[in-house]
Design a protein around this nucleic acid. Structure first.
Lengths: 212, 212
DNA sequence: TTTATTAAGTGGTCTGACCACATTAGGCTT
DNA sequence: AAGCCTAATGTGGTCAGACCACTTAATAAA
């Protein structure tokens, strides 16, 4: 009853297996670090060949959803970046147009995050952020990672993280030059002054003409 | 000499194969639509099992870099919307908070696209867009698909497409009610009036209070 | 020439067999 | 009893060969 159909697979078998695994993980309430059944057991339980199981696991591994350790097993993993980005990077990230789009997209996303933070972050959170920024040195990457984390929109944060990973892979790192600019920027956010904050971000942090 | 080492694979074999394939594609100058050698031939040429070849191909397929057609072969593909995203979607779209964030993120991205289009689209493109909008009925989805396509930033367009497909999967479809609003909106873009265009978009097309 | 039929090539899948590695259980020495 | 060594077991990693389903092209029949 739990079989995966074999006649004229409308969708690739390994994709069906991925879906089955997802359901299995969900129904069993597995969380990061937990072990999933062995390839041989999955093969039996789902009535499919082990090679098909492996193709599905490769997909999940690429997505960063699982981690396989020889001799030990396969484990749930907090899904994040990695392989995927790196792989795509080694491929066609050399395209200069892509690189250019990358920087622009990153700026837009950061602008979005700034708006969201200003409109939804608490006074405490912003003060905490300000303290962090004043107490130590930080890179531009650090700063915006923190800022994006303050964002209440998790999806937006994830998109930024991915794009930022790409940018990092393309060696596009913004250097934090003047700490004062960042501090003043945080103050503008605390004042909930959206327009000036974004303007300051574009002009003094990203050094971009304002008319884009 | 072209063998892939077998002793103590420091990196997974299928990842090495992916790299080999990349080099092969590059050195042979293969482009979108071209056919790559069959799995059996690759297996012989690289001296690895066919199952390992297949695991590598699955990775490339997930990345949207190739396309496999049973009975025909494997072909290079313009790296675009991969089912990778779709896969990830089936995983994390479970989270209700994410669904909640979808609409907001979509709006931000559309705002970004509007800005980009206004600042980079040609008069011709916009006129063409206006003609399309006046000549027939369209859904909100159609409208913004067209608009986003006008965007010069391909990465941004891809992100919007992904988010939009999420929203669609979550049954979050905006209905196009008053065509006049859309038409007037296009006119504002043609006039390169960024502020009014965005304001009009938020107020009359997305029916959102202006202060977010 | 047109239409069926056949053959060859290709991806999709299954099975069974090793290998390399990690963990565990028993038995041995001390 | 405590510690160490050694099977034995289980796991992912890989390979080889076998079918199947499908596409295309060559071939034979109309």
């Amino acid at each position: 009853m739990n079989d995966l159909k074999k006649s004229t697979p409308s969708t690739k078998l390994y994709l069906e297996i991925v879906e089955k695994l997802r359901q299995m993980i969900e129904s069993d309430g597995l969380v990061s670090g937990d072990k999933i059944p062995s390839e041989r057991e999955l093969s039996e339980r789902l009535h499919v060949g082990r090679s098909s199981i492996r193709e599905a696991l490769r997909a999940l591994e690429l997505l960063g959803l699982i981690e396989t350790r020889r001799g030990e097993g396969t484990f749930i993993r907090d899904y994040q970046d990695h392989n995927l980005i790196q792989l795509l990077g080694t491929f066609f990230l050399q395209d200069p147009k892509v690189k250019q789009d990358l920087a622009e997209t990153k700026e837009y996303l950061e602008t979005n995050c700034i708006q969201i933070v200003i409109s939804s972050a608490t006074e405490q959170e912003l003060q905490h952020f300000l303290n962090w920024a004043t107490e130590q040195a930080f890179s531009d990457d650090d700063f915006f990672t923190k800022l994006v984390a303050l964002n209440s929109n998790y999806l937006m944060a994830r998109i930024w993280t991915i794009v930022n990973s790409y940018a990092r892979a393309a060696n596009q790192v913004n250097e934090a030059i003047e700490y004062d600019s960042y501090i003043r920027f945080v103050h503008l956010m605390i004042e909930r002054n959206t327009n000036q904050a974004i303007s300051h971000y574009l002009k003094n942090i990203r050094k971009i003409s304002n008319d884009e």
